[in-house]
């Protein structure tokens, strides 16, 4: 890790977020300075990337992520994304980005109806995103999931569009939740917003089972550095 300036990355805490601190820690261990941001804030600090972490924002009322999209900070997040800023959503963050219309599709209850908490293997399908630039196509990453509503869904027309654009960034090799087309992670058409159900922040140290999540978060740190113009 360099001793140079650390790129700032905002990590948004909603009422009910519970992976925000792990995310801050993981980003810090990969050379970034994580900046905690509260959902009621209306502006983002000067950051090179934004992360919406996992949890159960607003108690998952109505549908997961459906209420969080009205949080004051989400206007600033949408503007940041529209300006090309990299935005990553993990788990509940993915659900929020879908409900906010920043990502295609929606997350539905697991086909088993069970909460699943275990390691999964996901295949990197696209590397031209700020989230997978450190990977090679076909890389298999071991990253845990922990969710009850993680089955990504799109109807056939939307799926065809998303596939044609190469927006499916990550796919399960052993689909745990019934996601359409084995989708574990998907990006927007502009490729600067991505959501994934697995938790890269829980897989940044081999001592904790896997270090593969670091590839995703380190890609994001690199993208944040580039956006801020911080010398590497």
């Amino acid at each position: 890790m360099s001793d140079g300036p650390r790129p700032k990355i905002a990590v948004v805490t909603f009422p009910g977020s519970n992976d925000d601190r792990d995310m801050c820690w993981a980003l810090g261990s990969l050379g970034a300075e994580a900046v905690p941001v509260w959902h009621a804030d209306e502006e983002l600090p000067a950051v090179g990337a934004v992360v919406l972490p996992g949890g159960f924002s607003y108690g998952d009322y109505l549908r997961c992520g459906a209420i969080a999209r009205f949080a004051p900070i989400m206007k600033a997040v949408a503007a940041f994304a529209a300006d090309g800023g990299p935005v990553l959503g993990t788990c509940n963050g993915f659900q929020i980005l879908c409900e906010a219309g920043l990502l295609p599709g929606i997350l539905r209850p697991n086909s088993s109806l069970r909460f699943i908490c275990r390691d999964t293997t996901i295949r990197v399908e696209q590397i031209d995103t700020p989230f997978t630039s450190r990977c090679k196509p076909g890389y298999l990453l071991r990253i845990p999931i922990k969710h009850g509503e993680g089955a990504w869904f799109a109807d056939p027309e939307l799926l065809a569009e998303v596939e044609a654009n190469g927006q499916v960034v990550l796919r399960y090799t052993d689909n745990p939740n019934g996601a359409v087309a084995d989708v574990a992670g998907v990006c927007n058409a502009a490729r600067n917003v991505m959501g994934l159900m697995p938790h890269p922040e829980h897989a940044v140290d081999p001592l904790l089972g896997s270090g593969d999540g670091a590839l995703i978060l380190a890609s994001l740190v690199e993208a944040a550095t580039a956006r801020l113009g911080v010398p590497a």
Binding site: L62, R63, A66, E99, G105, I106, F153, A154, D155, L158
Partner: peptide
């Protein structure tokens, strides 16, 4: 806009 998600 909120009560239903038209996708599903």
């Amino acid at each position: 806009q909120l009560i239903a998600n038209p996708l599903i």
